[in-house]
Design a protein around this nucleic acid. Structure first.
Lengths: 231, 231
DNA sequence: CAAAGTAGTGACAGATTCGTGACAATGTGA
DNA sequence: TCACATTGTCACGAATCTGTCACTACTTTG
């Protein structure tokens, strides 16, 4: 879950110093020395946060901030302005341009990281790893399953089974394969045990979604959102 | 609220001199004469600031600074480097290692205290950092927790646990991860200890809010304001 | 249709995991 | 020094999960 930060500053030495501090604080860092490149990188890489120098030759930091906040793809990314001036009107101007915070040079790495965390906390509800199929969503970060937005409970084994299935859809697995994948290769349990857990999983999914777990007679089970037609 | 300062220097005479100046300025002082002890003390005592000698036999001050900034439990503690050399590249090297300021020997006690106060002031950003969820608010500056405006009490560990959780919502953490994040990587306690502190935290939150700390069976715990539906 | 094979289902005992109160050790401040 | 708060550990019981079985329902085959 490393977060990426884009540093935009025309001075290499400043960029480097910041980059080192941030990498130590476990951020991934990408850099740009002008507005043009910054814009391109922001769109391409979708950083979690942008550090923007106020003074730059060509397009200024404020102008760039304004543009970033206009673009649909980048408008959600929080921006912190770096400024050498401490005048109040710069602050206002910066915040009006859409910056989320600003910090006055010189600043300590500590202070910078602290501000960044504050901004990130405010902004990001932490990106989550979610797989969704027909209203059924499995969140592997919170280890939670929800149907039409409502979280539902199930046993650990049922959860692992579902998590495996939802990331291996449209493929039939034998009971032995499921035991290997979900229980682990070193566990010895009866094959029919799989049936019981499949039953419990179907029950947890409820009538509207239990069709997702399909029986492949003579083979095993399959997860698929395509319903089969009876012959 | 007396603040604690850790002095790390291999020369007893220098340590003593600094210690006396600082105690007179109403700081509590703890000392270490090598990197090993310093690290241990930093983790145990969580000083508010660390004064670190650049030149020490064995692990150097820079190296120690780097380590301190890597550890989750100590990375927030500001560091001032003491150096006999005044070369510019040392300064850069020190700041790169994560130091917040540096001061060149010889220095006057007055100057030292002034710098320390400056760093400590910077360390506590004026902006109030408040995270609020369903009437529960955690102020990470005042380190206070309140429910519906009413301040509530809890132990330091419970506070750290809650502070971690509230800024890492909707994610399941194992007991080992929580120990790493909240207790620190170098602390060895039983995993079940987490359970006990979870219990204490839940108790402190009271019946209306203890649902926020959810058990993820077979895994660990999760902070979330979404209640699950039983099946 | 009968027989054989395959999957669904409910129940249950044992195993695991978690909640909880108690306690001793330690730290802290008066 | 004493009272008090905090912390980590433990032991016990409660809650939940798990694997297995027995039985039923259904499907395929001959």
């Amino acid at each position: 879950m490393t977060q990426t930060v884009l540093i935009v500053d025309d001075e290499t030495s400043i960029r480097d110093m910041i980059a080192i501090s941030l990498e130590m604080a476990d951020f991934r860092v990408i850099e740009a020395d002008n507005a043009q490149k910054a814009l391109a990188l922001a769109v391409d890489e979708r950083p979690d946060l942008i550090l923007l120098d106020w003074m730059m030759p060509g397009t200024s930091g404020v102008e760039l901030a304004r543009r970033l906040k206009r673009e649909e793809t980048t408008k959600e990314i929080p921006i912190i302005l770096l400024t050498a001036k401490s005048e109040e009107d710069n602050k206002v101007q910066g915040l009006e341009a859409g910056a989320d915070d600003y910090i006055t040079k010189p600043f300590s790495p500590r202070e910078l990281v602290a501000r960044m965390r504050a901004v990130l906390r405010r902004a990001t509800p932490a990106s989550q790893n979610i797989i969704e199929v027909d209203g059924l969503s499995v969140n592997t970060d919170s280890k939670r399953v929800s149907i039409d937005g409502e979280p539902i409970d199930m046993g650990p084994t049922e959860y692992r089974l579902l998590a495996f299935f939802i990331s291996h859809q449209e493929r039939a697995y034998s009971r032995a394969q499921l035991l290997d994948q979900v229980w682990g290769a070193s566990v010895y349990v009866e094959e029919r045990t799989v049936d019981v857990h499949i039953r419990r999983l179907r029950k947890a999914l409820g009538e509207k979604h239990d069709y997702l777990i399909q029986t492949v007679r003579g083979t095993g089970y399959r997860f698929s959102c395509q319903r089969s037609r009876a012959v």
